[in-house]
Amino acid sequence: MRHRLYPLSDLEDIPGTTVFTARRSRQAYHLHKFCMSLMEAANREAFKADERAYLDRFRMSEEQKQAVLERDFPRLIDLGGNIYFLVKLSNTDGWSAQRAVSSMTGMTPDEYADMMSAGGRSPEGLKSIREQQQREFGGEGK
């Protein structure tokens, strides 16, 4: 076994960020099967005609189905989803990728677009949950 450059748990240390691991991929397998099915025009039509009935073709959890119906992208990420699959859904809806992504930030699409045009979100202060906590508690941990 090679030397580990950092503990794997550090992957959980990035604020507002969910790393797509093998385990999450397994959790979202049927959700993602649904997403990839939208790569065919006929399936997109069937989905649009009756979303619930179309979703019931897949072995997704009820929570995952609800989150799809509500286009609740943060919840879908929580339930194992990965954005590269999920944009098949927002593309089907005719959303831009920017609108789909902005829906996870708590900003309106316009606010988000303005932030991007102004140079995007700076990573400063958003790199480590541990660091954020240390700052919050006045750096006593030094």
Binding site: G16, A97, V101, S102, T105, G119, R121, S122
Partner: peptide, 17 residues
């Protein structure tokens, strides 16, 4: 180059990096 397409940190851009 730098980008993040998910979660509350989406929209991240790191010109220095």
């Amino acid at each position: 180059m730098s980008h993040q397409l998910q979660g509350p940190r989406a929209g991240l851009i790191a010109p220095e990096f």
